[in-house]
Amino acid sequence: MTAPAALNTARPPAHEPAAGVSLERQSNGDRVFRVVLTLAAIAIPVLLAFLVFELWSGARLAIDRFGLGFITTSAWDPVAENFGAVPLVFGTLLSSFLALLIAVPLSLGVAIFLTEFAPMRIRQPVAFVIGLLAAIPSVVYGLWGIFVLIPLLRTTVFPFLERLLGFLPFFEGPIYGPSMLTAGIILAIMVMPYIMSVAREVLVAVPNSQREAALALGATRWEAVRTAVLPYARSGIFGAIILGLGRALGETMAVTMVIGNRHEISASLFAPGYTMAAAIANEFSEAVGDLHLAALAYVALLLFAVTVIVNAVARLLIWRVARGSAAGSKAI
């Protein structure tokens, strides 16, 4: 490329808006470059639109047949071709709720300890090690759940809970091992690193002046966190929790392996259950008829819709703190 030609094609630096510069002033190389990149960038929205379309057309048979009644009835009978998703929706919500019940206090405790109290030297390494939990494949959690966690729960933890809290409907009935509570515990371990790392980022983003002001007024270290740091980070922490919820809702393999896979609603947490993702994983490749397949695709479509909404809410909340907008400081 000769120098004068190149000079002509020089354009403003990238972060100046490129709009309004006519294509005629670009060299061929620039044009090709931009076209290739644009194609890659456009591929993502196109793929996603295609995904929604494919799920919808796959589910169409079931949508036409059951309509929205699909999420209010609880039959699941492939032979009679009658399908309703209530037990699946219930199982998905309950297992995720249990997971959050366990994971939220734990991950917030870790996040607060690592940003506020821990010695500087160990903050990064400990966060890194806990982050490794997020790298473990779901199927490995499932394997561990089947052969280590379930025997432990069945012989020790569940009988203990039954003796202690057996008068509650949640802790009665026969103990099998695979159960809603087992799924909740596995899910809690799996979503904890996500909640912890986002909550940590949010807490790090809280300005030091908040802490200093509280300490200057004579607050103890914990009081400074409780009165000055947590209120400031509140919506971001909430976002971290919802992000964890999004993970828990869609988690498939580990849940499938420990929840017991039964289309039933039971008050007892010791009873087996089912989730939307687990039902798809188990039944899709063995579906007996077109309507069965369509019903499972319908479940996938619902699961997709729910996770999109949950993630959108989470990002909105985190973004509000990250921007340091009025929303964060208003909380005080």
């Binding site: 993502i44 929205p45 793929l47 996603l48 295609f50 995904l51 494919e54 799920l55 057309s57 796959g58 999004g246 809702l249 869609g250 988690e251 498939t252 993702a277 798809i280 994983a281 899709f284 499972l296 695709a297 996938a300 699961l303 997709f304 996770t307 999109v308 949950v310 993630n311 959108a312 990002r315």
Partner: peptide, 20 residues
């Protein structure tokens, strides 16, 4: 859209690849 896709459960993407 990349954020949406990032939050999509992998099983849903599996159903999509199956249908496609």
């Amino acid at each position: 859209m990349a954020d949406v896709l990032n939050g999509t459960p992998s099983i849903v993407v599996g159903v999509f690849a199956w249908a496609w």
